[in-house]
Design a binder for these strands. Structure first.
Lengths: 122, 122
DNA sequence: TGGTATAGTATAGAAAAGGATACTGTGAAT
DNA sequence: ATTCACAGTATCCTTTTCTATACTATACCA
């Protein structure tokens, strides 16, 4: 039997796919905020996310909408009113987000103790 | 009582932290491969990942090593021998990777049926 | 008449990520 | 003497992501 190597590409990786939906400087934060606070208007979100630009907020929201994770509801009013909320489908990401939050919190501690050990070892 | 808005930043988000470790075009793929196949040498990895450049492979491996997810073991030989493996600590990411894989697979189907519905609705 | 609020778009530029290609040192095999 | 395998660096370039800033339409309020 030949030793045929297993060939792998990022394009066929489902983990990469899932990750692709979450990456973006503000996407996790927006998603978590919508999950916590429920439906929010554009400017409510903007005020909750200090430092974000309008362009970025629009952009990240559109990308999440594109993947069916959030919903955008436009009211025919003036001044405009647009509401964003997490879809039923989007909520299926909650366990993953929760797991990542837990892991991330532990990792922060792990890194600190690593640093501490290095300092100790002079 | 005033309606004080909750202010959020990506820098304080643990999900963003966890995500940061996994992002990079080849990181999930490398990690999954090391988890599946165990210890691997640099060129074994390279051959398993068609399309990756040496620079990218080195770079992604170093970033994973930096976070203590993988281990790099250098043998004092010529030609050089360097082995990479997932650390005990790195294995704590497995449930998350698994959950993402599952979700990603379902999402692929979700997107397909969405497309199908759109086509149906002419 | 001018200012405010809303939910954006447009444009330009900086910074980060990734790609292409060439080069390195060393021992062993041809 | 040349070539190969190995595990990288070094350099330059392109693409993508993110930032900064200005601008839009419309109704309402003073």
């Amino acid at each position: 039997m030949k030793d045929v190597p297993v060939e792998i590409q990022p394009e066929m990786c489902k983990v990469t796919d899932a990750l692709g939906i979450l990456v973006g400087k503000w996407k996790p934060v927006i998603l978590l905020h919508l999950l916590n606070s429920g439906t929010q208007r554009f400017n409510e979100l903007k005020r909750s996310l200090p430092g974000i630009t309008q362009k970025m907020l629009t952009n990240q929201l559109r990308e999440l909408e594109e993947e069916d994770i959030i919903e955008r509801k436009v009211y025919a009013q003036v001044p405009p009113k647009v509401e964003y909320s997490v879809t039923e489908y989007g909520r299926s990401l909650e366990p993953i987000l929760h797991a990542m939050h837990e892991w991330g919190a532990k990792h922060t501690i792990h890194k600190q103790s690593k640093k501490h050990n290095q300092a100790e070892a002079k």
